[in-house]
Amino acid sequence: MPPLTVPPTADVLDVLRQDRLLAVLRGSDPDALTACASVLAHSGIRAVELTLSSDAGLEALRRSVADSSLPPGTLLGAGTVLTRDQARAAIDAGARYLVTPGVTEEVLAEGVAQDVPVLCGALTPSEAMAAVRLGAAAVKLFPAHAVGGARYLRDLRAPFPDVPFIAIGGIALDDVADYLAAGAVAVGVGSPLLRESAQDSSRAALDALAARATAYLAAARRDA
């Protein structure tokens, strides 16, 4: 059995190592999601994932990629990528990285073939090993909160000290420091960050999103 090695990655992992935060946008309103992506980017979050759990995610990704007002260095990716066709569509739309909820061989193969990094979901040691061997740029521990949180991450990392882990799933603001202390390269935050702004693009909702983004970014960078 070959040893575990971490393949060379594109700049998304460098950004995550610096900012330690990935924003995850999920919803069914492309207008709201596009507005959220803009607010998050202008709040300083450079890695923004738009999930493909609905058609709105891909449309919002296309619009956000075309938005010349986004700060330079904003990295837009596609999440909940389940199939090769979705991977190709996301890359064609401008995704700089792909994110999966589990070990999906065809998505990893497409990412490797097109030199687009894949943050691959895994929950167990066997899944983490499979993700790395198939070319994952990083392992996304998901759903982190449901399996023991930071303590589980610490235990999982023990046999894989060189594998970059990103913790995602139910991470509240007060949890960020614990996950980073447990060895996460970064944390991914979805609904605790997005809340009502996934469907409400009013000024009040977007201002509240900006405030939450600033708080999460400050917590993530505190010990960077």
Rank of each mutant, 00 (worst) to 15 (best):
T9C: 14
T100I: 07
L13V: 01
Q114E: 10
A182W: 03
G57S: 08
V65G: 13
L4R: 08
A87Y: 11
D55M: 06
A37C: 11
V103Y: 12
A87F: 14
G27I: 03
D67P: 07
P7N: 02
V65M: 07
D14I: 02
D11R: 14
D19M: 05
A167Q: 04
V6C: 11
A109M: 00
G102M: 06
A172I: 00
A219S: 09
K140P: 13
G94A: 10
F160N: 06
G190F: 01
G27D: 13
S197K: 02
R133E: 15
S68P: 03
A41Q: 04
D55G: 15
S202P: 08
M1D: 12
R221I: 02
G188I: 02
A10S: 11
P161W: 09
S38M: 09
D11M: 12
A150D: 06
A204F: 07
L16Y: 04
A89N: 10
A87E: 04
D207E: 14
G44E: 00
A184K: 01
L193P: 14
V112H: 11
S53R: 14
A89L: 10
V81G: 07
R17Y: 07
M1L: 12
A136G: 10
Q114P: 08
L58W: 09
V116A: 05
P30L: 03
V39M: 12
R203K: 13
A144E: 01
T9I: 08
R17V: 10
A198K: 10
G73R: 06
V12P: 04
A224C: 05
A144P: 15
D31M: 09
G169D: 02
P30N: 08
A93G: 11
A37K: 00
A198F: 14
D85S: 15
L22T: 01
G77H: 12
P161M: 08
G170Y: 05
A220C: 13
L206T: 09
A137F: 01
D85C: 13
S64C: 14
D31L: 15
A172R: 03
V185E: 02
G188C: 00
L194M: 15
A93E: 12
S69W: 00
G135H: 03
I168L: 14
L108D: 09
P3D: 03
A184N: 06
T5W: 08
A138K: 00
V112K: 15
A213L: 02
G27N: 13
L40F: 12
G121Y: 02
V107A: 05
L141Y: 01
Y152V: 06
V48C: 03
A47N: 05
L193T: 08
S38E: 09
A66C: 04
